[in-house]
Amino acid sequence: MLEIKNLHARIGEKEILRGVNLTVPDGEIHAIMGPNGAGKSTLSYVLSGRDGYEVTEGEVIYNGQNILDLPPEDRAAAGIFLAFQYPVELPGVGNANFLRTALNAVRRKRGQEELDAVAFLKLARAAVKSLHMKEDFLKRNVNVGFSGGEKKRNEMLQMALLKPGLAILDETDSGLDIDALKIVAEGVNALRAPDFSALVITHYQRLLDHIVPDVVHVLAAGRIVRSGPKELALELEARGYAGLEAA
């Protein structure tokens, strides 16, 4: 379970998050919607521990542990996964090598046995297949020369292998065509389980047709201003975000 309590955070002098309160129980998928500049990406970076974001108040408890003092790699090991809005290119680093290094780093910290090359490849190939990706995906350099859709699929592949307890999707749907959108949705839906939860950050409602959320929250000006059932997304789509900040 993820509990965000009165979270304030800033970049430099600029306060972006101004008291976010949010609870995501295990097994649930919550969507966070909101206008540009509301703090959606900041929230995802603060949760995953990126440098440069200073938390000035509040706490984030994940499975009983305050994670704000943990470096990003320890949060990953604790089960938090951030799917990037703009996945980063790593020239010269083979995807398989990257995935195996990451997976083994996480397994080591979780007290699980590391996978040898053979066991890893078996696992990775199965995951590649289930995401309808070509096998040469594993041989290519991480995100280098990938199309937008391929990059997002690669995020889903990483997520499938790292098996997070909490997935944060930071506008993973931006720039995707409908086929790629479905693949992202399948990637998340495949992980649905009583011990898996997700925060789906999105600007548009359309992703939520494919990943049906249990709760929809509206983030505006650094606070959650409304929460409601999945129908709230449709309402926002119809009426826009105008006026919400005052709510």
Partner: peptide, 18 residues
Amino acid sequence: QLFYCRSRGLSQEDAVGL
């Protein structure tokens, strides 16, 4: 690049190495 690697579980030093 560093943050991307670390968010996947790699330590800072492993990320630089990679």
